[in-house]
Amino acid sequence: MNFTLRQLQVLTAVARHGSFTRAAQDLGMTQSAVSTSVRHLEAELGLPLFDRDTRNVRATETGRDLAARVGGLLDDLDNVLENARSTALRRRGRVRIAAVPTAVTRLLPPCCAECRGRYPEIDLRIAEMAAEDVAAVVLGGHADLGVLNEGPQDLAPLTATPLGNDIFCLVCPQGHPLARKRTPTWRDLDGQDMVMLDARTGNRALIDGVLRDQGVRVRPVQEMSRPEAVCALVAAGMGIAVLPELAAPTAADRVLVTRRLSEPEAFRRMVLVHTPGRPLEGPVALVAEVLARRGA
């Protein structure tokens, strides 16, 4: 049998209204087109679906039963199509992410690659900035999500999801005596020349706290605001450094060595933040799920 979706819609509309004219008005069709559709259905089935006289159109028993069953199928089809439309809309749109530099260079790239592969219609826009600025732009509504490390900035007004711990590491030239230690301790840093992060950074405050608690004295020789500048000076032989792992050189570096520091294993917490008060929806929720899963 050869039925079109439109013909089935005509069947249910005529049965519901009991009139070709009102069914035509409901469907935005002409009365003659409705009559033609009904005749085609009846010819295909070999059975009358409606009893007609000059004033009334009444569904036969077969017509009533068929219209009821077809009506349920059409409702199911509408639900399926609506769900498909909703899913498509959830996967389309722009998502603005504000992130600290170390997150942009190490944490976000694999997340962006997964989002691009799974959700190609999501337009990711990433802005790099300091941690305190990340919190401010998210709270101000200028970014949908923020990725930053916990620190002196106030995160209380925001909803935060943990992304894991970024462990502090020793960074030194490959020829340095500490490079031979697989698990150097904080006490191994005692008396060393150190290229430090700027005293105004949240990371520096954490590093100074551990050194103080362990009774370790170092000789600061330089202070830099960017981890890249710290690494450049360490590579030039100015001293050693302590950096969070996301900011430290990778194993592919041919000049510098990175070793996690132990006793204690100190770290900074990375978090994903968004404005509070309402659940994440649409493409923002999809991107946040990828970030939370990969960052954990």
Results as ranks from 00 to 15, higher is better:
243 L>V: 05
107 L>N: 10
104 V>F: 10
281 E>G: 10
9 Q>W: 05
163 L>M: 13
126 I>Q: 05
153 Q>R: 10
278 R>A: 15
260 R>L: 12
279 P>S: 06
42 E>N: 05
253 D>S: 09
242 V>L: 10
28 G>Y: 04
261 L>A: 11
5 L>I: 02
225 S>F: 12
203 N>A: 14
189 L>G: 04
157 P>N: 03
167 I>K: 14
56 N>H: 13
205 A>E: 14
65 D>P: 03
206 L>M: 14
172 C>I: 01
114 E>C: 00
101 P>E: 14
92 R>V: 01
249 P>Q: 03
110 P>Q: 10
140 G>V: 05
159 T>V: 03
88 A>F: 04
211 L>T: 08
195 V>D: 02
116 R>L: 02
16 R>Q: 05
170 L>C: 11
12 T>A: 04
122 I>V: 15
260 R>H: 15
80 V>F: 06
67 A>Q: 04
97 I>K: 09
269 R>M: 14
209 G>P: 03
42 E>H: 10
142 H>S: 11
41 L>D: 07
280 L>P: 09
233 L>P: 00
265 E>M: 08
218 V>Q: 06
286 L>E: 15
176 H>R: 07
216 V>Y: 13
226 R>N: 09
287 V>Y: 07
82 E>I: 04
253 D>G: 11
86 S>N: 09
276 P>H: 00
264 P>W: 06
248 A>F: 09
91 R>A: 13
271 V>C: 13
146 G>R: 06
275 T>A: 11
36 T>A: 12
212 R>K: 12
278 R>E: 13
15 A>G: 01
205 A>V: 11
232 A>Y: 00
210 V>T: 08
186 W>A: 03
7 Q>Y: 01
140 G>W: 04
255 V>C: 01
283 P>Y: 10
85 R>V: 08
126 I>M: 03
191 G>H: 09
111 C>F: 02
196 M>E: 07
182 R>F: 14
51 D>T: 09
267 F>D: 06
26 D>F: 01
261 L>D: 12
172 C>S: 07
192 Q>S: 12
169 C>N: 13
292 A>N: 01
279 P>M: 06
134 V>W: 11
294 R>Q: 15
25 Q>I: 01
44 E>N: 14
117 G>V: 02
82 E>P: 02
267 F>G: 15
268 R>P: 06
146 G>Y: 07
169 C>Y: 11
44 E>T: 14
9 Q>V: 00
163 L>I: 13
143 A>N: 11
98 A>Q: 01
73 L>M: 08
24 A>N: 02
214 Q>R: 15
164 G>H: 10
169 C>I: 09
90 R>I: 00
121 E>C: 07
15 A>Y: 00
23 A>E: 04
116 R>Q: 03
206 L>F: 08
79 N>Y: 06
69 R>V: 06
238 M>A: 15
67 A>F: 05
29 M>E: 08
184 P>L: 05
219 R>S: 12
213 D>L: 09
73 L>A: 13
15 A>R: 02
270 M>T: 13
72 G>Y: 01
200 R>W: 08
193 D>H: 08
88 A>K: 08
9 Q>F: 03
